[in-house]
Amino acid sequence: MKEVDLSISEHKRMTPLDVVKIRLQAQKNPFPKGKCFMYCNGLMDHICICENGNSKAWYKAPGHFNGTLDAFIKIIRMEGIRSLWSGLPPTLMMAVPATVIYFTCYDQLCAAFKVRMGDRSDLAPLFAGAIARVGSATVISPLELIRTKMQAEKQSYRELSDVIRSALHSEGWRSLWRGWGPTLLRDVPFSAMYWFNYEKGKVWLCEYYSCTDPTFSITFTAGAISGSIASIVTLPFDVVKTKRQVELGEMQTKNLSTQVSSSTYNVMKRIVAENGVSGLFAGFMPRLIKVAPACAIMISTYEFGKAFFRRYNQQKHGMTQLQPSA
């Protein structure tokens, strides 16, 4: 239960970073690659499209974010500080099942794989983390879709429910798992790399500091480093996931087919065409600032809790054995 309580409090503190990350990922570049726009006044936006890349033009893009700090300032100024906690209710609803399923499955699977894999038991955390994430990500995918829509656009629950009903009517229940593919492409490699690097890093740090059991600082450091590496590598899939989920309802409004450019590969191609390769790493800084400390705090507290209850059970078992039989 300690991991669940920590997960809830962590999500409350990190939600503003999540909102900023998703806004940066969901925004459209006012200068699509290869084109420039001339802006005249507030009544007419695009009065000229210059295909010639050498032409120069001024374009004003209200609400366009130029970075993490700029996004924070503009969101607070235009929507109020409470907007930084958009999507908090579904986030908190996700925290309990995601944490329970994820950590429980990982521990059980890792122990089973270590027994079966023998000499290759060092790979057990990699496979256990990947499989555990598939289960938790699948269960919470509809809640993550709702959270992403609320954080990407300032919507009321009524407006959001109308969008979801429309999507259910046109696409069926599968629409609630929109973005599930890129979510798995983001989360499964993330978990595999995270647990593998964490276990390796923990062992290396224990050997370096000549300690038999990992201390809180060792688990904290190993968790932060492994989380940072995994978050950077999987960021492009996080961007694709956000794009796919934000599009829910937009296709129907524009009378476009939901099957057009909907695969992960096609969405990636579209992002690169519009924003360049850097578009695949939108929201890099807020994601890194969120994930690194979150992974460090979560895993160090998790390891501390496991060690505490292990010692408690051992002491209790020892006291039971010492008690004389009646």
Rank of each mutant, 00 (worst) to 15 (best):
A273L: 08
V277D: 02
I289P: 05
Q323M: 10
P293I: 15
Q314N: 11
Y302I: 00
K316S: 09
R270V: 06
I299F: 12
S262L: 03
G279W: 03
R311G: 15
L288M: 14
V267A: 12
F281T: 06
T320I: 11
T264W: 07
G283A: 07
A307T: 12
K306R: 13
I297S: 03
S262K: 12
F281C: 04
T320H: 10
T320Q: 12
V272M: 03
Y312S: 00
R287S: 15
P293L: 12
T320V: 09
G305K: 03
F284P: 00
L280Y: 05
P293T: 15
K269W: 02
Q323N: 06
V267P: 07
I297R: 02
V291M: 09
K290T: 09
S263V: 11
T320N: 11
A273Y: 06
I297D: 02
T264K: 03
L288D: 05
G276N: 10
T264C: 12
R287C: 10
L322V: 06
F308R: 02
M298E: 14
G279M: 01
L280K: 05
Y302H: 13
I297A: 09
P286T: 11
I297V: 15
E274N: 14
N275W: 02
V267E: 09
Q321C: 05
R311H: 15
S278F: 06
E274V: 04
N266T: 07
Y312N: 00
M268Q: 04
Q323Y: 12
Q321P: 00
E274Q: 13
N275Q: 14
T320S: 11
F308P: 01
F309K: 01
A292Y: 00
L288W: 10
E303Y: 03
S262E: 11
Q315E: 05
M285N: 03
S278R: 08
G279I: 04
M268V: 06
A307F: 01
K306S: 09
Y312E: 00
A292R: 02
M298Y: 08
G276W: 11
I289G: 08
K269M: 06
H317V: 00
R287Q: 15
E303N: 06
S263Q: 06
L322W: 07
T301Q: 14
S262W: 11
R270Y: 03
S263W: 02
R310P: 02
K269C: 09
E303Q: 13
Q323G: 02
G276K: 07
E303R: 01
T264S: 10
C295E: 11
R311L: 13
F308T: 04
M268C: 14
A296Q: 03
F304E: 05
L288T: 14
G276Y: 10
K316G: 07
F284Q: 01
R287M: 10
F308A: 07
Q321A: 12
T301F: 13
M268F: 04
N275T: 07
F304N: 02
A292T: 14
A294T: 06
A307N: 12
R310G: 05
C295F: 08
K290L: 09
I299W: 10
R270Q: 12
